[in-house]
Design a protein around this nucleic acid. Sequence first.
DNA 1: AAATAAATTGTACGGTGTACAGAGATAGTG
DNA 2: CACTATCTCTGTACACCGTACAATTTATTT
Lengths: 220, 220
Amino acid sequence: MATRGRPGPRRTLTEDELLDAALQLLDEGGQASIRGIAAKVGVAPNAVYTYFPDKSAVIAALIERLLGDADTGGFADESRPWRERIEALALDLRANLVAHPGAGALLMSGPMDGPRTTALNERLLGLLIDAGLDPADAARSTYLLIVYVLGSIALEVADETDPGPLPPEDARVARRRATYDQIPAEVFPRSAAAGPTMARFITTEQYLWGLRRILDGIKG
Amino acid sequence: MATRGRPGPRRTLTEDELLDAALQLLDEGGQASIRGIAAKVGVAPNAVYTYFPDKSAVIAALIERLLGDADTGGFADESRPWRERIEALALDLRANLVAHPGAGALLMSGPMDGPRTTALNERLLGLLIDAGLDPADAARSTYLLIVYVLGSIALEVADETDPGPLPPEDARVARRRATYDQIPAEVFPRSAAAGPTMARFITTEQYLWGLRRILDGIKG
DNA sequence: AAATAAATTGTACGGTGTACAGAGATAGTG
DNA sequence: CACTATCTCTGTACACCGTACAATTTATTT
């Protein structure tokens, strides 16, 4: 019960500095590891545990940070039509996340229950209710929108990790790999005809197109 | 150039046995690690590299296996209306993936370009074109559907990993954790009123509801 | 100045992916 | 048959990871 509040000591680091380092690692194609973060701020690995209880807490904080503040950007402008506001939010999120390779994988790797995520949910929900949807549909629509936005970004951004200079590689490993790469590779005429669809990167147009179809389906 | 084809030796293991072991690990709440797989089949860790060039190949193969064969199930019955067929496919995939905790995270952790995934894309695409959509819209719709199905499953299934018996834990770590858990926790009245939306688990009804909104938006 | 609390380090353990070299088994060839 | 090429699998090793525990340093309150 910490009977008498007897305060404390030096504090040179901050959570934010650690998250900065983590982001920097991600941007360099790295791994956002505890040890990496510690090394980047010039401290022993375990020092990180003073600020975060474990790695998952770091990841959660990082995600919150990447999600940014839902109240900024075009979404905040309440005078605009609700569809425009949602599109603005979706584009903002996309911009935030796509800027950091590896962020997508991070996103889907844990539960989505941080305060920012909850705030995002809340904002979207209010918007949809104000737009005239009944509350139950609005709630389900919110979920749908979040799945689309985060899911497509995650899919898009997944595994963009730089394979690096591809150092020598054991000759036998190379042989194995060559064998493995010869997957049956059937022909898929329709896919070929329609153009790239499962591409790792989609255009902003395609992203928005999907979002609008969802909005159509919701509002219909 | 393997001038003269001089064939080979014993082969007691198979890729499938290794994938079986990996799935078993996942089902036990484990990690589908190379070493775990090797241990499960009773072999040295590196023996796995005879069959897969690296871990990502194992994961890719595992995903292909989890996705199953798109030609089976309700989707294959061409006499049914196209919306029903898509719903059947979505439910099949969900059943396959939700059965294995950890599968969702796996899904989003890499590019989606395996043969099964491509086949799935192809099938959906053909279906939508036959339903009367123009090819470009059909392609984008396919992407939209795949993002929704895989994304919602990934979100749902993410981090269901059993936290285990939670062994003693350092007293100071516990203190830190307690501090960290006191996140500002504002009140979100609308979310509370509308019921759970960001829940880690959604009902099949909610899943289908979202799918149908997307189909509405596509076909509108 | 003394006591106390927090930040940080040193060290260590068990886990991971995987490179490399060698051992053993299997097959086709002479 | 023996020979030899080819493949599977093991032993060992390295670098990396998360993190527990104890000891040390530093700042602050008393």
